[in-house]
Nucleic acid binder design. Structure first.
Lengths: 133, 133
DNA sequence: GGATTACTTGAACACACATTCAATTAACCG
DNA sequence: CGGTTAATTGAATGTGTGTTCAAGTAATCC
């Protein structure tokens, strides 16, 4: 960290005419603030959502549920991804924890559907990535 | 998969009055279509973006760059995250590959800024997760 | 009630990933 | 040029994560 501060000081020296250690301190504060403007537990929560989505099996499930625009039975989802029954259940569970899908029991069957959060994220992701190189 | 088809057949049997194997076939097709409506290489690309974001170090970097609304020097970013110089470089590199940051060399220093894609994703993520339980 | 079916949970393991250290490139300065 | 600094790259390693197998729960049907 001392190393880092040294380098930052030299960098600021080039920009500002002169640069006292007060300037370095101030810049360090500004940078710190940028990172922590949102609460740390909100960021943790956002990371949970991202981790839940960042997996082929789970992302496929979310995309299918969003595209379906209706709830689907676990047995239907099983036809969509190439994992064991148990693997599917683990995947759905992680998605539910992240607030990306919601489940409802219907007799023997369990139905899941995408949440608004999932719809919003998939939409932006598709849009952002299709406007691509 | 045979197992899966059996279960799906029983499920469809409950919904439809009668259910022939043609019905099962049709539903399997529909489900398949939902999953593959977007090209497979687009989905791969979306997964790259998600994987790049789904890490505390990298997500912090992106959030800081988005919040900064200007390019920052690597030496400034070093003050924001708690990894080695090399770790930071690896992190930035992965973000650049995913099209989330763009770099520019300025003499000895290297400047990075968030791309529109990064801004869009962070914005939706913050909005979607803050409207929370 | 007992049997079957639908799904979930927990433990185990193999694999991927994030981070670090060491070496390297590229730019500036004397 | 030689030396210093900024940043990157590659190899090594410890940790986390995805998946499966085996066992468990809950609902239905006879």
């Amino acid at each position: 960290m001392a190393q880092t501060t040294e380098r930052l000081r030299r960098y600021l020296d080039e920009g500002l005419e002169e640069c006292c250690s007060e300037d370095v301190e101030r810049r360090l504060d500004e940078l710190e603030t940028l990172g922590t403007e949102l609460g740390t537990e909100q960021v943790a929560s956002e990371l949970d959502v991202l981790s839940a989505l960042a997996n082929r099996t789970r992302y496929t499930l979310v995309r299918v549920l969003v595209a379906a625009e209706e709830e689907l039975c676990v047995c239907e989802l099983n036809a969509v991804v190439d994992v064991s029954e148990s693997g599917l259940s683990h995947a759905i569970s992680k998605l539910a924890d992240a607030g990306l899908v919601e489940g409802r029991k219907d007799g023997r069957w369990k139905m899941y559907r995408a949440t608004n959060r999932a719809v919003a994220l998939v939409t932006v992701l598709e849009g952002s990535v299709s406007a691509d190189e």
